[in-house]
């Protein structure tokens, strides 16, 4: 548990425009809320994510994730598979420099899952709260 009870993690969420992004909109239409310090970035496909985006995100945040379409359900066939691979690559880099690899993750959902979207974000946020501030954060 973080030493600072008031710690509010900053999170960067990359979202595929065919699932995560639409699910966020769905959540909004349902009037669901999620933590404030969450930045959403729209991608044309989860396969657009790259190690470098995760790393740049982590320079200024406590955690980052990619929201991808359900497995076997990528519009571009393998985008979500590639995304998972890049999450693993990023985790390896973090491990090398002694930063918790859980600060990056991949989550799968569909466009009509507003509730699921909020649940994922909230869980990840709670997890980051547990981990505490990103020790490698460069831009504070």
């Amino acid at each position: 548990m973080s030493a600072d009870a008031n710690f509010q993690p900053k999170i960067v969420v990359f979202a595929c425009e065919n699932s995560g992004w639409l699910a966020a909109e769905h959540a909004a239409s349902l009037g669901l809320s999620y933590p404030e310090r969450v930045e959403l970035i729209k991608l044309p496909c989860s396969g657009k994510i790259d190690v470098i985006y995760f790393m740049k995100a982590l320079e200024k945040s406590d955690g980052t994730m990619i929201m991808a379409c359900q497995q076997e359900n990528c519009k571009f066939l393998k985008g979500n598979v590639r995304a998972a691979q890049r999450v693993r690559q990023t985790q390896n880099l973090l491990k090398e420099i002694g930063i918790e690899e859980d600060r990056v993750g991949i989550f799968y959902l569909a466009a009509n899952m507003g509730h699921k979207f909020v649940e994922i974000v909230q869980n990840f946020y709670d997890k980051m709260r547990e981990l505490g501030p990103n020790p490698g954060k460069v831009i504070k």
Partner: peptide, 17 residues
Amino acid sequence: EKEVGILGSELAMARSK
């Protein structure tokens, strides 16, 4: 360019830590 970016982040974060 991409590897420069990734390594740059890694180095900055490692030293920040």
